[in-house]
Design a protein around this nucleic acid. Structure first.
Length: 155
DNA sequence: GCCAACGTTGGC
DNA sequence: GCCAACGTTGGC
């Protein structure tokens, strides 16, 4: 099993939105970056996902989710009216994929970007590297557990 | 294949 | 709102 981190802007779709969704599950659609897409395709059912709020106050990991359906074509790429419409993608050979994720648990205290930057354990995380813009990132097992520990203890 | 222009992300 | 970083596009 692997560990991941996905970013979302809470004004668009927050972890609370995920908790309120039917079966606490949603399709993680709209990813339009090849590297992020490749990570989505590597995700396996049961993989754990940290949900991070970007462009937020505070910017923080706010909850844990899990992959409940592995990669399948993202339907928004074929919808002309959707912001994520991609005229160059065809149903025969879809370019963009999504997974379904289900909320597992909200962290009692969000782990802020600032806290993560201060943590020695998390120093190497791709999320913290400058210029990083990927919306789907792998996280090591140690990093995952460190963040969850911080989110449950508030430390 | 190079690279300038442009668009987007996301922290500040 | 600004701007650095970085991906993508398209002319050559």
């Amino acid at each position: 099993m692997r560990y991941w981190l996905t970013k979302t802007e809470p004004t668009t779709f927050s972890f609370d939105d995920l908790l309120r969704a039917p079966r606490k599950t949603t399709g993680w659609d709209g990813v339009r970056n090849y590297q992020a897409r490749n990570f989505l395709r590597e995700m396996k059912k049961g993989d754990a996902v940290l949900v991070y709020h970007s462009n937020a106050d505070p910017k923080a990991v706010v909850g844990i989710a899990e992959v409940v359906r592995e990669a399948y074509p993202d339907p928004t790429q074929f919808d002309r009216k959707d912001d994520h419409y991609d005229p160059d993608s065809s149903p025969d050979d879809p370019r963009w994929f999504q997974v379904d994720v289900r909320a597992v648990e909200k962290l009692s205290s969000p782990v802020t970007l600032e806290q993560m930057k201060l943590s020695k354990e998390l120093r190497g995380m791709p999320l913290l590297q400058r210029g990083n813009r990927l919306s789907v990132l792998p996280v090591s097992e140690a990093e995952f557990h460190a963040i969850v520990r911080m989110g449950k203890s508030g430390a």
